[in-house]
Amino acid sequence: MKEVPATEIAAKVAELCIRACTVLPPDVVAAIESAREREESQLGRDVLSRLLENARLAADESIPMCQDTGLAVVFVEMGEGVKATGGHLPDAIAGGVRQGYETGYLRKSVVHSPLKRCNTGDNTPPVIYTEIVPGETLKITVAAKGAGSENMSRLKMMAPADGEAAVKQFVRETVERAGASACPPVIVGVGLGGSFEQCALIAKKALLRPLHDSNSDPAAAKLEADLLDAINSTGIGPMGVGGRITALALKVETAPCHIASMPVAVNLQCHAARHAEYTWE
């Protein structure tokens, strides 16, 4: 049995929150650089250059790249042979979020009640998904999810007869409706299948994949390529000023589903795709 002290988990989560909000992952930087090479619109290229400059500044000076430092969405992969000691795992994670958002000068963007809307003051509670996996490793991923892109995300329970064409239409329409509100160039996470809530969750997990990879299933990989092309034909462009690059990447995740169902979820992620992870081996 591997033991990890709760205090150590909290400290690491705090560090991950700050790192996620200030350092854009290298694959995202590379994707924006590549986009700038390919973008035909002058205004669009200017936007992409400024986004790269913004990422550089944020990392160098350790200030958030975006003022919306998000809701902390935390993915935990916990080995069966791992135990958190000296405290409960969810408490340790929440404590880490509280500490990270305070000491990192990050924005507190969480309200207690959706209707009464009183700020909790410390960006807790985080949203935590825990998965039990074989082995003795503990992996924690913190995604700081901003609302600009999250608000434009959609889910639809389609009928099996609607087919692939309807799925494509729904994904493209979601990006078009989002326009500049989602801060393009976006990253698109598509969940296909599963139950209502699983579909949304796999769409969100799709956003954590490296931007340069493709789904290992050839059919899903083809859907990814086709959808990315369709989205980059909309002309929305970087920050909606027009151009060829509306999305940096599109990832499809699928799950088995009921014979009567075909859920489709589209989780949008702005270009400031902030996530950081750590693994206790």
Binding site: P64, M65, A180, C270
Partner: peptide
């Protein structure tokens, strides 16, 4: 006016 979304570090300058 439209500002540069997601470039909060740059705009703060």
């Amino acid at each position: 006016f439209g500002g540069l979304g997601g470039a909060g570090a740059l705009l703060a300058r």
